[in-house]
């Protein structure tokens, strides 16, 4: 459709080159297309977590963490917002703020499964690339709806079929979570798509 596909942003953090390389290879194997950033020290990780805009995923080896593991993880979680993390380590860290782990004892199959699950799960929650922004065409339809036009009128104005209008309206409602015309009008006014004087 007309909206821009946003690329995923992933940070791979480990002080060992081989681990970073291994992770990159596996991501390639399971077909994850993402911009990758590597951190080889905790400081570098902190910098990336703060600097990379819209960071989605963090794959973190515990060898990188200073002594107070749990506290460090809490800090990381605090600064990376909606980003999800998976930890590579000897064993699961008790009471950890992150729930995904890859243990050193896992074989290839287990590691691949874990990684797939990790990317898949987050995809359905917030990794959804369609971040809810409306396309230009959807905004045109939204404006007309907010101004009180019927589907037929909108179709005529925009030179599209009524079915297309209905599809746009469905997508708008799905993206915004707003169902009623008066709700959509408030949204359009809030975002200056239309002016208060124009509303019928």
């Amino acid at each position: 459709m007309e909206f821009e596909d946003k690329k995923m942003q992933t940070v791979i953090a480990s002080d060992q080159y081989l681990i970073r390389l291994g992770v990159k290879t596996l991501l390639n194997v399971i077909g994850i297309e993402s911009d990758l950033y590597e951190a080889d020290s905790f400081e570098e990780l902190e910098r990336l977590v703060n600097d990379v805009p819209d960071l989605n995923y963090l794959i973190l080896s515990e060898d990188l963490l200073p002594k107070q593991k749990q506290d460090c993880l809490k800090d990381i979680k605090g600064s990376c917002g909606l980003c999800r993390a998976i930890i590579i380590g000897q064993q699961k860290i008790p009471n950890c703020v992150f729930e995904h782990f890859i243990l050193h004892s896992y074989n290839r199959k287990q590691v691949v499964e874990k990684l797939q699950l990790f990317f898949l799960e987050s995809d359905s929650t917030f990794g959804n690339h369609d971040s809810g922004t409306l396309s230009d065409r959807e905004i045109d339809v939204l404006k007309a709806v907010a101004l009180g036009c019927s589907n037929k009128e909108i179709a005529d104005q925009l030179f599209i079929s009524i079915n297309t209008v209905i599809t746009h309206r469905k997508n708008i409602t799905q993206k915004l979570g707003i169902k009623t015309i008066s709700g959509l009008t408030v949204y359009a006014l809030m975002n200056h798509f239309i002016k208060a004087e124009e509303v019928r």
Partner: peptide
């Protein structure tokens, strides 16, 4: 209820 749901959405997402 529909309008109430819209109101919640407007506050939670867009205000």
């Amino acid at each position: 209820e529909v309008k109430l749901a819209d109101m919640k959405n407007l506050i939670i997402r867009f205000l």
